[in-house]
């Protein structure tokens, strides 16, 4: 804290969409309280700060630093290492920082393929020279350098030490406000901080707990995409063949999606101790697949039926690991050494 006695707040985005900032501002009139309580130290989304401002702070100057976004390139990594050094409490804010989220789906392919998709092989791209981003470009004025695009997208805790995690894509405003209140109480009134490493701003059970739809024993013969059927109101979506990640997803959001007929996407991540959200949901889906098999059925026939039923799930990796790829047991797809072919520059910190 500096002379005016106010704790310092920072919020930074790494590889992110900006939704986390919007959700933070969505806490409504409470934002006035945040302004009254905190001094902003670094918040590129809403105030003009430069990296050199941060470099000028003494270590540990920032009391609370919220980082959203995944670690996609060398700039992301440099910035979070810097902010870690300058911050007392560092929070992985939102799904990207927590577990990689959408950016980490590119871990299913290679760096090369990702760059091709973004700069070459796409009908909306006009790039006749086939130019790809280069870390170094020599121009008459000197050597230009841009951040290095990593092979693998990482979560924040895979790069720096993280004090707390707030899940969600984005975290719900009421949860953000609740967490801020706890931290503020601790910083200004000497309340106790939650133990290091915990998830904040979330429940402790699965989304189903908060979901009012009626649940029954499940036997699903095939799955549908949301546009293919009109779900029966009031009835569990998973039972109706709409993929809902609710059972494998931590509560805290209030089950907003399933209650308006859209299956839970799983953005709050796995339950503590459930390790791997995608795998958990896959085994659950496998357990409720009903191909009307009877004991003694021909195994090959059964296998075909199971495969046909499973094939009704479009893009399983993107469905089950939509948010959690970087933090899953898989972490990324095998590339058999392709990634080692492109040397990666050292990162300062």
């Amino acid at each position: 804290m500096n002379a005016n006695g106010k704790p310092k707040l920072a919020m930074y985005w790494a590889s992110a969409c900006g939704g986390c900032e919007i959700s933070t501002l969505n806490i409504g009139e409470h934002i006035l309280t945040v302004d009254a309580v905190f001094d902003l130290a670094f918040f590129p989304c809403i105030a003009d700060f430069k990296v050199k401002d941060v470099l000028g702070y003494p270590d540990g100057y920032i009391d609370l630093c919220l980082i959203n976004g995944a670690i996609r390139n060398s700039e992301n990594e440099e910035m979070v290492r810097l902010l870690r050094r300058k911050s007392k409490l560092l929070v992985a804010f939102g799904s990207c920082a927590y577990e990689g989220c959408i950016p980490a789906l590119s871990n299913l392919t290679t760096r090369d393929a990702t760059l091709r998709a973004a700069y070459l092989d796409n009908p909306s791209i006009d790039n006749p020279a086939g130019t790809l981003p280069q870390p170094h470009t020599a121009v008459p004025e000197g050597d230009l350098e841009i951040p290095f695009f990593y092979h693998t997208v990482k979560s924040l805790d895979q790069v720096v030490d993280v004090d707390y995690t707030i899940p969600g894509c984005p975290p719900e405003p009421h949860q953000i406000w609740a967490v801020l209140q706890v931290v503020v109480a601790a910083l200004t009134q000497g309340g106790s901080l939650p133990p290091k490493g915990v998830l904040l701003g979330a429940g402790s059970v699965a989304v189903c707990e908060e979901c009012a739809l009626a649940k029954h024993e499940k036997a699903v013969a095939r799955f549908y995409r949301p546009y293919q059927i009109r779900p029966e109101p009031g009835l569990c979506l998973l039972e109706q063949g709409l993929i809902c990640m609710g059972p494998a997803t931590l509560s805290g959001c209030g089950a907003l999606c399933p209650q308006v007929g859209m299956g839970c996407r799983g953005c709050y991540g796995p339950l503590p101790g459930a390790e791997d959200q995608g795998m958990r949901m896959l085994t659950a889906i496998a357990s409720i697949l009903d191909v009307s098999g009877r004991p003694g059925d021909n195994e090959l026939d059964l296998e075909r039926k199971v495969e046909a039923a499973a094939d009704t799930i479009v893009d399983p990796a993107g469905t089950f690991y939509r948010f959690s790829m970087a933090h899953s047991l898989l972490r990324r797809a095998r590339t058999d050494g392709v990634e080692a072919a492109v040397p990666q520059p050292a990162v300062w910190s």
Binding site: V205, A206, K218, L238, G246, P247, S251, L271
Partner: peptide, 21 residues
């Protein structure tokens, strides 16, 4: 019990009928 959300995925899986809701 504190972690069960009652999603009922497991309800008809038990070959020994040990699971009830």
């Amino acid at each position: 019990a504190e972690r069960c959300s009652g999603c009922r995925i497991c309800n008809n899986l038990c070959p020994f009928n040990a699971i009830s809701y």
